[in-house]
Amino acid sequence: MQLELRHLEAVCRIAEAGSLGRAAALLGVSQPGLSAQLRRIERVTGGELFVRSQHGVEPTPLGQFVLSKARRVIGEMDALTAGARAAAPHPTLRLGSILLVLTDRLLGHLEQELPGHEIEVNTEHSVTTLTHMLGAGQYDAIMYGEVSDHEVPLPDGVAARTLIPKEPACVRLSATHPLAGQDQIHLADLAEETWTIIVEEDDGSQEAMVDACRRAGFTPKLRYRIADRKMRWDLIAAGRAISLCQPTSPHAEGTVLRPLAGDPLTGRIRLAWNRSTLSEDRARLLYRAAGYAYLDNVPHNTFYRSWWEARPELHPNLD
């Protein structure tokens, strides 16, 4: 076996994550699969690259040497890719997004803002994965959310701009739920409910939700972790769980969306881009497209339309 770029990236991810489990999650592979791959890499390099400790894994002297060379090779490859893309007349826009509602409407506006350009949009379940892929040059730009005071750390060489500085969280519940007829719901009234959340929420939402519920006098029962939107909504429609949602979420059969009284949870939406692969002008056009896509979704929720119109200071500047 010869070492390939993917092997060097795996070694770097293990070192950055500090554990095989976290590295496997970032790489989108199983931990046993990553362990087997590491053993094959170590056979080629001639010795162990990491040792286990009480804090996770740490590189051996051989591992430090391999890491220093691997980072240099990966950096050169990233520079080659970025240079080639910068020289291309109309490079493909590679956009990564967390599961944000505005993604549904984004493509139409991107076609208007960037006519004739190829566009590639992928969704991820993890903000950490998005930022790593952005830093590695695998995405030109990413859209993601942050909840409460949580700030997503961004890699070097990345610029960021806030699209929506504040939006209130709503709760989605079954249309037959006893609270479904209320105009707004107090968080404390949901103390006995079972919640469903996204598989890997590393945007601060889970921590913020737990903190808000504790302030309301209870600890939420987080039972279902489901990434598929339709599966989550079907579960809610059946009355088996409830979920936090963006206020711009569209109607889902058998469910209702209600605001939480007092806005105990708020989030924001941000756009970040790799300066070496995306020009300021294209980043501005992407921001405009994302802003218009968000505005398309505001009318979905009567409560939110009123909330939004009363706060012009939160509206994105799309001029």
Rank of each mutant, 00 (worst) to 15 (best):
E113N: 06
L27F: 02
H177C: 10
E4A: 15
L106Q: 10
M1Q: 13
V11Y: 04
W308K: 04
A180H: 01
I98S: 14
A87I: 09
T176I: 03
E4D: 14
A25W: 04
G116S: 09
P220K: 04
N317V: 07
P32R: 07
L314W: 15
D263T: 12
E201I: 11
A188Y: 12
D296S: 08
R284W: 11
L5H: 09
D228E: 11
T45Y: 11
I236G: 01
L102W: 04
Q37S: 12
T219P: 02
I14P: 02
E280V: 00
S35C: 12
S174P: 01
S35D: 11
E124Q: 13
A79G: 04
R215L: 06
Y304C: 02
L27A: 03
H132Y: 12
L295Q: 14
R270N: 15
T92S: 11
Y144L: 13
R225L: 07
L20Q: 12
Q112F: 01
R43Q: 14
P264R: 07
M209R: 07
L257G: 00
P316W: 03
E111A: 14
T131V: 15
L49A: 12
D319N: 14
G204A: 14
S249R: 01
V256S: 02
L173R: 03
V298W: 07
V171R: 01
P250T: 01
I164E: 01
P61H: 08
Y304N: 05
V158F: 07
E120Y: 14
T45N: 04
T302S: 05
Q54G: 13
R232S: 12
V101T: 10
D183W: 00
R268Y: 03
L285V: 04
L173P: 00
Y294T: 04
P264C: 02
